[in-house]
């Protein structure tokens, strides 16, 4: 009897996998260029890919002048976040999430601040000292500073 329960549970898992396979939406992302941006007061123009990754990985926490770095990101499932992670950081969004979770839930660091839209990203990075984030190229203007990745 119990054995039947278990095998029906197994069948449910397999069935769920099948239903899922049929529903995988091929979410085509419009190819965009996404650039890292900072608050205009941040005294940095260039960053290596490695340093940029350390910053978004929340391991490098202060700018060279000693002021705190404040990192802003879009939600894990935002297409712009995906493009930025892969294009500029050469890392997958799930790896960033795992890194942030390890820091948060061991108390050895903090996760970045999540914003809900590019508008919010623009407004907060432009107004928060020490802020770093990213925007698609078309939305960047003189109120934020573009960081060139070497």
């Amino acid at each position: 009897m119990t054995g039947n329960h278990l095998s029906s549970s197994l069948k449910c898992i397999l069935l769920a996998s099948l239903i899922f396979f049929c529903n995988v939406a091929v979410a085509g992302e419009a190819v965009k260029t996404v650039r890292p941006i900072t608050h205009p007061g941040v005294g940095v123009d260039h960053l290596s890919c490695n340093l940029l990754r350390s910053i978004f990985g929340m391991r490098l926490r202060i700018w060279q002048d000693g002021s705190p770095i404040r990192v802003f990101v879009l939600p894990d499932n935002a297409p712009i976040h995906n493009v930025f992670s892969k294009q500029q950081l050469n890392i997958f969004p799930y790896q960033l999430r795992a890194t942030w979770d390890r820091l948060t839930f061991t108390g050895t660091g903090q996760a970045p601040i999540t914003v809900q839209s590019e508008d919010e990203m623009y407004a907060l990075v432009a107004s928060t000292p020490g802020a770093i984030g990213y925007l698609s190229e078309a939305r960047i203007d003189e109120h934020v500073k573009v960081i060139h990745v070497d």
Binding site: P68, T104, G107, T108, Q110
Partner: peptide, 10 residues
């Protein structure tokens, strides 16, 4: 809960 009052201390 985590509190980072300055960059070097949490």
């Amino acid at each position: 809960a985590s509190l980072r009052p300055i960059g070097k201390l949490q």
